[in-house]
Protein backbone atom coordinates (compact mmCIF):
# COMPACT_ATOMS: atom_id res chain seq x y z
CA UNK A 1 0.00 0.00 0.00
CA UNK A 2 1.27 3.31 -0.99
CA UNK A 3 0.57 6.75 0.46
CA UNK A 4 0.50 8.44 -2.90
CA UNK A 5 -3.11 9.33 -3.68
CA UNK A 6 -4.92 6.59 -5.50
CA UNK A 7 -8.62 6.14 -6.27
CA UNK A 8 -9.40 4.90 -2.78
CA UNK A 9 -7.76 7.82 -1.05
CA UNK A 10 -9.76 10.24 -3.12
CA UNK A 11 -13.00 8.39 -2.51
CA UNK A 12 -12.42 8.25 1.22
CA UNK A 13 -11.69 11.97 1.21
CA UNK A 14 -14.88 12.84 -0.63
CA UNK A 15 -16.92 10.47 1.56
CA UNK A 16 -15.51 12.08 4.70
CA UNK A 17 -16.51 15.48 3.40
CA UNK A 18 -19.92 14.14 2.52
CA UNK A 19 -20.41 12.63 6.00
CA UNK A 20 -19.45 15.92 7.59
CA UNK A 21 -22.02 17.56 5.35
CA UNK A 22 -24.66 15.09 6.52
CA UNK A 23 -23.81 15.83 10.11
CA UNK A 24 -24.22 19.51 9.42
CA UNK A 25 -27.55 19.08 7.66
CA UNK A 26 -28.87 17.05 10.55
CA UNK A 27 -27.62 19.24 13.39
CA UNK A 28 -27.27 22.89 12.34
CA UNK A 29 -29.96 25.05 13.92
CA UNK A 30 -29.44 27.98 11.60
CA UNK A 31 -31.05 27.42 8.23
CA UNK A 32 -28.12 29.15 6.54
CA UNK A 33 -25.87 26.65 8.27
CA UNK A 34 -27.97 23.85 6.83
CA UNK A 35 -27.58 25.43 3.40
CA UNK A 36 -23.82 25.56 3.83
CA UNK A 37 -23.81 21.90 4.80
CA UNK A 38 -25.76 21.12 1.68
CA UNK A 39 -23.10 22.97 -0.30
CA UNK A 40 -20.55 20.64 1.28
CA UNK A 41 -22.58 17.66 0.07
CA UNK A 42 -22.82 19.04 -3.44
CA UNK A 43 -19.17 19.86 -3.51
CA UNK A 44 -18.16 16.38 -2.51
CA UNK A 45 -20.53 14.89 -5.09
CA UNK A 46 -18.98 17.03 -7.80
CA UNK A 47 -15.58 15.94 -6.60
CA UNK A 48 -16.62 12.32 -6.89
CA UNK A 49 -17.56 12.87 -10.52
CA UNK A 50 -14.18 14.28 -11.27
CA UNK A 51 -12.42 11.51 -9.36
CA UNK A 52 -14.12 8.82 -11.34
CA UNK A 53 -13.62 10.72 -14.56
CA UNK A 54 -9.96 10.89 -13.81
CA UNK A 55 -9.44 7.29 -12.78
CA UNK A 56 -12.06 5.31 -14.66
CA UNK A 57 -12.58 7.07 -17.97
CA UNK A 58 -9.66 9.26 -18.55
CA UNK A 59 -10.06 9.90 -22.31
CA UNK A 60 -13.53 11.28 -21.83
CA UNK A 61 -14.82 14.43 -20.21
CA UNK A 62 -18.40 13.64 -19.14
CA UNK A 63 -17.59 13.63 -15.41
CA UNK A 64 -16.26 17.15 -15.67
CA UNK A 65 -19.42 18.27 -17.40
CA UNK A 66 -21.45 16.71 -14.60
CA UNK A 67 -19.36 18.65 -12.10
CA UNK A 68 -20.15 21.81 -14.02
CA UNK A 69 -23.82 21.02 -13.91
CA UNK A 70 -23.66 20.40 -10.20
CA UNK A 71 -22.04 23.75 -9.68
CA UNK A 72 -24.77 25.39 -11.71
CA UNK A 73 -27.54 23.58 -9.81
CA UNK A 74 -25.87 24.52 -6.54
CA UNK A 75 -25.94 28.13 -7.59
CA UNK A 76 -29.63 27.94 -8.42
CA UNK A 77 -30.33 26.19 -5.16
CA UNK A 78 -28.42 28.80 -3.17
CA UNK A 79 -30.41 31.58 -4.79
CA UNK A 80 -33.75 29.96 -4.01
CA UNK A 81 -32.69 29.07 -0.50
CA UNK A 82 -31.61 32.59 0.21
CA UNK A 83 -34.93 33.95 -1.03
CA UNK A 84 -36.77 31.46 1.16
CA UNK A 85 -34.73 32.37 4.20
CA UNK A 86 -35.42 36.01 3.70
CA UNK A 87 -39.14 35.34 3.35
CA UNK A 88 -39.22 33.06 6.38
CA UNK A 89 -37.19 35.48 8.42
CA UNK A 90 -39.57 38.28 7.55
CA UNK A 91 -42.61 36.34 8.72
CA UNK A 92 -41.19 34.43 11.69
CA UNK A 93 -38.25 36.60 12.81
CA UNK A 94 -36.04 33.52 12.96
CA UNK A 95 -34.35 31.03 10.70
CA UNK A 96 -33.85 28.46 13.43
CA UNK A 97 -35.07 25.24 11.83
CA UNK A 98 -36.06 23.76 15.20
CA UNK A 99 -38.54 26.63 15.59
CA UNK A 100 -40.06 26.01 12.18
CA UNK A 101 -42.28 23.05 12.88
CA UNK A 102 -45.56 23.71 11.11
CA UNK A 103 -45.31 20.21 9.65
CA UNK A 104 -45.98 18.83 13.13
CA UNK A 105 -48.80 16.35 13.00
Amino acid sequence: MSFSPELHHWLILSTILFSIGIYGVLTRRNAVGVLMSVELLLNSAAMNFLIFNHYASKPFIDGAIMALFIIAVAAAEAVIAMALFVAIFRSRKTVDVTQINTLKG
Partner: peptide
Amino acid sequence: VYVGGIVILIVFAVMLTS
Protein backbone atom coordinates in the same frame (compact mmCIF):
# COMPACT_ATOMS: atom_id res chain seq x y z
CA VAL B 1 -18.95 30.38 -9.18
CA TYR B 2 -18.62 28.77 -5.80
CA VAL B 3 -16.20 30.94 -3.96
CA GLY B 4 -16.97 34.13 -5.85
CA GLY B 5 -20.72 33.63 -6.19
CA ILE B 6 -22.33 31.19 -3.86
CA VAL B 7 -20.27 31.99 -0.79
CA ILE B 8 -20.95 35.67 -1.26
CA LEU B 9 -24.64 34.84 -1.60
CA ILE B 10 -24.52 32.88 1.61
CA VAL B 11 -22.83 35.77 3.38
CA PHE B 12 -25.66 37.96 2.17
CA ALA B 13 -28.14 35.41 3.48
CA VAL B 14 -26.41 35.46 6.81
CA MET B 15 -26.53 39.20 6.96
CA LEU B 16 -30.14 39.43 5.91
CA THR B 17 -31.39 36.88 8.42
CA SER B 18 -29.27 37.53 11.47
